[in-house]
């Protein structure tokens, strides 16, 4: 009897999935493989430091599903602001899709053209705290927090990565291979891995478009992982 219910349940789930396809892509940001909690103090072994994350926001643009090098599906919105204070922002709505795909592609950040196109609304509204005021340009990635080893005032580290003009083009394209045969997938950014590659005693503040911002953005874009469910 139990088996029958299980079978029915699985069949039911399968048929829903088969009919509906995928309608969202979920992003995760993790520390020690668990979802990041803002404001919580983490003892990070690799850093030998206790670290608290206070703000984490970043832009994802032009999320696309690729099959045999062709774009087969994309996100509903061109630019998406992921804000750890708003858990719902981690779920990215896409056009419903049940077909094949072997790759996910997106831009980590905001493209140059959008950066010079004037005032925009929604996720791109300059009141989201992701737009510089002393010079034009979106902040693609904002990470603020505290670490005991960080020598800045109040031990605060501040990374505001942006820049849309050469040589400081900060937006990066990310491509992730994916096996569609799995039940589903999530995209994970293990943020503790970023900090394990930064020495917070001398790199703790990036707040303008420069070489350091490009390097760190490159580093982050290489850290996105696909995790099958």
């Amino acid at each position: 009897m139990k088996q029958f219910f299980l079978f029915t349940f699985l069949f039911f789930t399968y048929s829903i999935c088969a009919q509906q396809g995928i309608s969202q892509v979920k992003f995760n940001v993790t520390v020690d493989e668990k979802p990041l909690e803002l404001g919580k103090s983490y003892e990070l072994l690799e850093n030998e430091d206790s670290i608290t994350f206070d703000v984490l926001r970043f832009y994802i643009s032009d999320l696309q599903f690729i099959h045999n090098e062709e774009v087969v599906n994309k996100s509903k919105k061109k630019h998406i602001l992921i804000d750890l204070e708003k858990p719902e922002s981690l779920q990215i709505a896409i056009n419903e899709y049940a077909g094949n795909f072997d790759k996910i592609r997106f831009t980590f950040g905001i493209d140059s053209l959008t950066n010079v196109s004037g005032a925009m609304g929604g996720d791109l509204d300059p009141t989201n705290g992701m737009y510089w005021t002393w010079q034009s340009g979106y902040i693609n990635f904002k990470l603020e927090g505290r670490a005991k080893k960080c020598p800045a005032r109040k031990n605060e580290f501040t990374f505001h990565l942006g820049g849309y003009q050469a040589p400081n083009l900060v937006a990066q394209q990310v491509e992730l291979n994916i096996n569609k045969a799995e039940k589903g997938f999530e995209i994970t950014l293990p943020i503790d891995k970023l900090l394990s590659q930064i020495n917070l005693t001398d790199t703790y503040r990036i707040m303008s478009p420069n070489h350091e911002a490009v390097e760190m953005s490159h580093l982050i874009s290489s850290m996105f992982l696909v995790e099958n469910l």
Binding site: N115, V116, S117, G118, A119, P126, T127, G129, Y131, T133, W134, Q135, S136, G137
Partner: peptide, 28 residues
């Protein structure tokens, strides 16, 4: 020349501590 579009110019004096000393969010 730090501002690339007329729309975005007002953000500069608005947020400058020596000019209007505000934040965009607070004005909204």
């Amino acid at each position: 020349g730090a501002i690339n579009h007329l729309d975005m110019q007002a953000l500069a004096p608005l947020n400058d501590a020596r000019e209007m000393g505000e934040t965009t969010d607070s004005v909204i």
